[in-house]
């Protein structure tokens, strides 16, 4: 057997998604509103489902409804609907009890596109 270690440090540019990534870093749900049909996507869609390429950035309230959740080895994840968005999204659920179906976006920090939903009460207490 040939044992070989390979370490890779990537420097990835988010390109057009830079406002989205910056929003996550600051704990804001920065969505894309279509200039043609006003549909709001979060995470943002570069091309709206109506086919329009033009959109504007808009900050959603950051609260979301958990539609489905899965629990296991790597933690809790959910399919959620952010208030004000026309799309749903998958994300990590952070300290949201199984009985709780709403949460608020958590800041990712470090300019990372990490999308997490945390408990509303925790956010208010914080």
């Amino acid at each position: 057997m040939i044992s070989h270690h390979l370490g890779l440090d990537y420097a990835l540019n988010p390109g057009w998604m830079a406002p989205y990534v910056a929003g996550l870093s600051a704990g804001k749900a920065r969505a894309r509103r279509c200039q043609s049909c006003a549909a709001t996507s979060f995470p943002p869609l570069r091309v709206c489902t109506c086919g329009c390429l033009e959109g504007d950035w808009t900050d959603l309230p950051g609260t979301a409804q958990v539609l489905f959740r899965t629990t296991g080895l790597d933690g809790d994840f959910g399919l959620v609907h952010f208030d004000g968005a026309n799309t749903k999204t998958t994300l990590r659920l952070q300290a949201i009890p199984a009985t709780e179906t709403r949460g608020i976006i958590a800041a990712s920090g470090d300019n990372l596109p990490v999308l997490r939903l945390t408990a509303l009460a925790e956010e208010r207490d914080g």
Partner: peptide, 26 residues
């Protein structure tokens, strides 16, 4: 999947398939 949204968030293949199946079953 989408490395920018799902991958960096730490979503695993099994978690995404599990959510998709729950939506299907419902």
């Amino acid at each position: 999947f989408d490395a920018w949204t799902d991958g960096m968030t730490g979503l695993t293949s099994t978690a995404l398939y599990a959510l998709s199946f729950q939506a299907f079953a419902a």
